[in-house]
Design a protein around this nucleic acid. Structure first.
Length: 334
DNA sequence: TTCGATGATTTCTC
DNA sequence: GAGAAATCATCGAA
């Protein structure tokens, strides 16, 4: 019964022969995709499903025919036997029911293998992992730009995710996936990402020092704690930039007063300066910018160590970014 | 064909 | 429910 229901739901069994369009529509709904090539894939899926359906019906007909033929044959035999010995109608009925039972069990096997075939087909065509497509270069640029400009807290808010999704032409969950993967992979192999980080850091630093609202700002949605409508790299006040740079010396920085915008700039500039070989004679590269409130150790110093970046203090990191999110050099917790 | 990169899923923790 | 970590499965360059 369950097999019947399943085959019916998949569009294999039922009155609509050679169709399976309902199943394909369901498949489309399951996939939830908006890809341009999804229709091609679904037509492929439909074709395969129709093939399975056709085979199923052909086999079913064959079994029914064989069942009828065999029943007739047995009945004839019994009739012949009735000449030599008395055969009650009950006995004939019993024989027929035995034959039908046998054939129905064969049919059951057919249904089962058809279900399996449909399942395999579904997983082959509908498993998102199998349909993976790399994001466009531009989308990756946008995401990377956001990531590296928010390196101290790469946790975009829902709004930021939506904005990024819109810009990249992907879904919010894809943005979440991307950031999840990026955080893990960055943390695992900072050295490998160094060059990429430098690239984006330099780019954002240049756009920040130019002091105008363009370029990366346009591509960087606000951080959750950003104030105002400006982007991550906007500088409403040129003094902000000065604040950011002067704080690099570690003189007058107060963690609580830094805004996310400045934080982004600091991230970028710190990176560039680090790359340039340090910021003072007595300072190691990784000590470039380590105000107490930030407890930052820069990427290079993490290479090869089991340390946790973006140590979580609060369950909702982006909500209290300036207070609770550090690139801390605490031992790996998990 | 191989292999690193990468998007998606699963499992677990908080 | 969000995120970390592990893993899977595919892509794409060499």
């Amino acid at each position: 019964m369950r097999l019947d229901n399943m085959l019916l739901a998949e569009g294999v069994a039922g009155p609509e022969k050679g169709g399976g369009s309902a199943a394909a529509a369901a498949a489309a709904a399951v996939a939830g995709g908006v890809n341009a090539d999804s229709s091609t894939e679904h037509s492929d899926y439909r074709a395969k499903l129709a093939q399975i359906r056709q085979i199923y019906h052909t086999e079913l007909e064959k079994y029914e025919q064989a069942c009828n033929e065999f029943t007739t044959h047995v009945m004839n035999l019994l009739r012949e036997q009735s000449r030599t010995r008395p055969i009650s109608p009950k006995e004939i009925e019993r024989m027929v029911s035995i034959i039908h039972r046998k054939f129905s069990s064969i049919q059951m096997q057919l249904k089962q293998s058809t279900c399996e075939a449909v399942m395999i087909l579904r997983s082959r065509f509908l498993d998102a992992r199998r349909k993976r497509r790399n994001f466009s270069k531009q989308a990756t640029e946008v995401l990377n730009e956001y990531f590296y400009s928010h390196l101290s807290n790469p946790y975009p808010s829902e709004e930021a995710k939506e904005e990024l999704a819109k810009k990249c032409g992907i879904t919010v969950s894809q943005v979440s996936n991307w950031f999840g993967n990026k955080r893990i992979r960055y943390k695992k192999n900072i050295g490998k990402f160094q060059e990429e980080a430098n690239l984006y850091a330099a780019r954002t630093a240049v756009s920040a020092t130019s002091g105008v609202h363009h370029g990366s700002q346009a591509n960087s949605p606000n951080t959750p704690t950003s104030t105002g409508s400006s982007g991550s790299f906007s500088m409403p006040n040129p003094n902000d930039m000065f604040l950011g740079i002067s704080n690099m010396n570690g003189d007058s920085y107060t963690g609580s007063s830094v805004t996310p915008n400045i934080q982004s700039q600091v991230d970028s500039l710190r990176h560039v300066m680090n790359q340039a070989g340090g910021y003072g004679d007595g300072m190691a590269a990784n000590q470039l910018y380590s105000p107490p409130a930030m407890s930052v150790t820069w990427c290079g110093s993490h290479v090869g160590k089991k340390e946790t970046l973006w140590t979580s203090v609060s369950p909702k990191p982006h909500q209290e970014k300036t207070e609770t999110w550090h690139m801390a050099s605490t031992p790996q917790g998990k």
